[in-house]
Design a protein around this nucleic acid. Structure first.
Lengths: 215, 215
DNA sequence: TTCTTCGGAGAACGACTGTTTACTGGATGA
DNA sequence: TCATCCAGTAAACAGTCGTTCTCCGAAGAA
């Protein structure tokens, strides 16, 4: 391992610059992906945007696919913490308030990181296998946590783990669809989109409260 | 117009061959799109697959984007009639039976036309604007018809048009998601996927029957 | 028949692609 | 201080790309 006692610190201006370039590559890619899919994103295209030589790309990623996987992590880690911060909201007894809060949270997320949201929605079913799978597993992981959170709620007594995961999946899918809808809607279409999303969540919430009716 | 009385018939072996080549181009494209997105599909790539000169492509489409729009029509017209034939099913009083029937229908559709389904799911949020929009309007049109069909049902008395369209949208979105899930699931994952889809439809159905509870 | 139409072929163009190989020069660690 | 590391450079490679222009030959119309 390292000779410097214990810690793996390379800790230099060296590593910092490398990370900076890596981030520049990811940012440039994210920008270019607004008008195309990852499967058509060229390595040279990205480096040209950043202002470095094409060959320098290989110092960071071996593929644009690998870059894509890195973008998945960045995008969904951001989404992850953002949503978690929102769902740990203090007061939300009323279901209607919780719905409005959730939709508002999604709207904020789309407004603050549109490129990341677009990337996830686009590549979720996109043509690059590793990226598609990365998104799939990350979303499944995320759904699992949502299922845990739902299970901890008092309304969820009597729910099987399977049902909880099913419900969480519905919520996650709906979140991605809603985020994409926000993206495609123009400035004047934001509020109607939000209203539609709330209505849909009301429907789901209703089904949820009556799930165990027939025991 | 035409000199031959009234009819616009060009009616030749000429037109037939042209349509045949056009169809060959679309089929080849659909095949190539299994492992990539439309935005990276090359004109030469398609013609090479068909076995014609690259320049012949322009006799049918000016773009791969235009080819994509044609594929949207073909895919969704197929889906359209397939689903309509299924939803006009004779006996389906029981909601559980209707759910099972619907999911089975989606499974059949995916099995019989996997490339079309993949294309729609992939390009729905894809990088080619005209194609994305074509899918959007076609799906909206389809959702409108579903809303009409739902409105004609006895369970839907008291439902506003807005609510009906919201519900139809949920069904359509769920259908696309489920179809995509069938695609990505391996042979052994088909039945679990179907079971999940049925469970989700049960949840929606439950929300639907209680939609007007608070009047 | 003769003239016209038009789907397709062929060649050539300039531009762009991913990848390799050998290199430079500043940060790094002893 | 000095040898080492390594992010980024530069040139060259063999391909592929979209698009243009000219031409061919069978089908269609008269």
């Amino acid at each position: 391992m390292s000779h410097t006692a214990g810690a793996n610190r390379t800790s230099g201006i060296r590593q910092a610059q490398k990370l900076k370039t890596r981030q520049a590559l990811m940012d440039a890619a994210l920008g270019l992906l607004e008008h195309q899919s990852l499967s058509s994103l060229g390595l040279r295209e990205v480096t040209r945007e950043v202002g470095i030589a094409p060959t320098a790309f290989y110092r960071h990623f071996k593929d644009t696919a690998e870059l894509g996987v890195a973008l998945v992590d960045e995008s969904l880690n951001g989404l992850h913490t953002a949503i978690r911060a929102g769902l740990t909201a203090p007061d939300a007894d009323d279901s209607e308030a919780r719905i409005a809060l959730t939709v508002g949270l999604i709207a904020d997320l789309v407004r603050s990181a549109p490129a990341h949201v677009r990337f996830i929605a686009r590549e979720r079913h996109g043509g690059v296998r590793p990226v598609r799978e990365a998104i799939g597993t990350q979303l499944a992981l995320f759904a699992g946590e949502v299922a845990d959170a739902l299970g901890a709620l008092p309304d969820s007594s009597g729910w099987s783990r399977e049902d909880l995961e099913m419900l969480a999946g519905v919520y996650v899918d709906h979140m991605v669809m809603t985020a994409s809808a926000f993206l495609e809607a123009g400035p004047e279409g934001q509020e109607p989109t939000a209203e539609l999303a709330r209505r849909q969540l009301r429907l789901i919430s209703l089904g949820r409260t009556h799930w165990l009716d027939g025991r």
